[in-house]
Amino acid sequence: MRTSHTLAATAAAAAAVGLGLVAAVPAQAAEYSSALKIKGVQYDAPGRDSNKCSGGNTKNEYLTIKNYSRSTNVNLKGYKVKDAAGNTFTFKNSHTLQPGDYVHLRGGRGTDSDAGNVVYRQNCNFIWNNDKDTIYFYKPSGARADVHAYTKKANDRDGNGYITYHG
């Protein structure tokens, strides 16, 4: 019985391929090969944009990265975050995320804190565009861990400057 279902499914799949009915695999399908994923992004920091290191609001722009594994701790050291323009941040220090744990990668200057789940880029310039951008997240090996493109109009329906990806 099991064999006939397998053969029927294989024949149906082959017929679909032959007829050109198989949809292309989404470009973001590879993201699921990583325990770490982009949970969300505060791409438009609340308030008037000011990239001054003292009194600016770049620290309110952040990317949330979460460990979606149920059993594996993952060290962020060597992971990279990049935008469409090529601005890149590399996690240079050890920061281990336990299963279900997350970290906010914030703009501006500050002290990284495992207890506070925060890492600062030590750069007061904004990285994420307020109208549209693409967020790339790479493993230390260089393999893509996750990627998301957004536009303010299409992805931020409530207009609060925050987009959730993996909940």
Rank of each mutant, 00 (worst) to 15 (best):
T3M: 08
S4W: 10
T6F: 10
A8R: 08
A9H: 06
A12T: 10
A14H: 04
A14C: 08
A16H: 02
A16E: 04
L19R: 12
G20V: 04
V22C: 04
A23R: 14
A24D: 14
P26K: 01
A30P: 03
L36Y: 01
L36K: 00
K39Y: 07
Q42P: 05
Y43T: 05
A45S: 15
P46F: 12
C53G: 11
E61G: 09
E61D: 08
E61H: 11
Y62G: 03
K66F: 01
N67E: 02
R70S: 11
S71E: 03
K80A: 08
G86N: 03
G86E: 06
N87W: 13
N87R: 10
F89M: 04
F89Y: 15
F91E: 01
S94P: 06
T96I: 14
Y102T: 05
Y102G: 02
G107D: 08
G108D: 03
R109Q: 13
G110R: 01
G116K: 14
G116P: 05
N117Y: 15
N117K: 14
V118P: 09
R121S: 12
N123K: 08
N125H: 14
N125E: 12
F126S: 02
I127T: 07
N129A: 11
D131K: 09
K132N: 14
T134A: 12
F137H: 04
P140K: 01
S141A: 07
R144S: 11
A145D: 01
D146P: 02
A149K: 05
A149H: 06
Y150K: 05
K152H: 13
N155C: 06
D156F: 10
N160I: 04
Y162F: 15
I163N: 00
T164K: 08
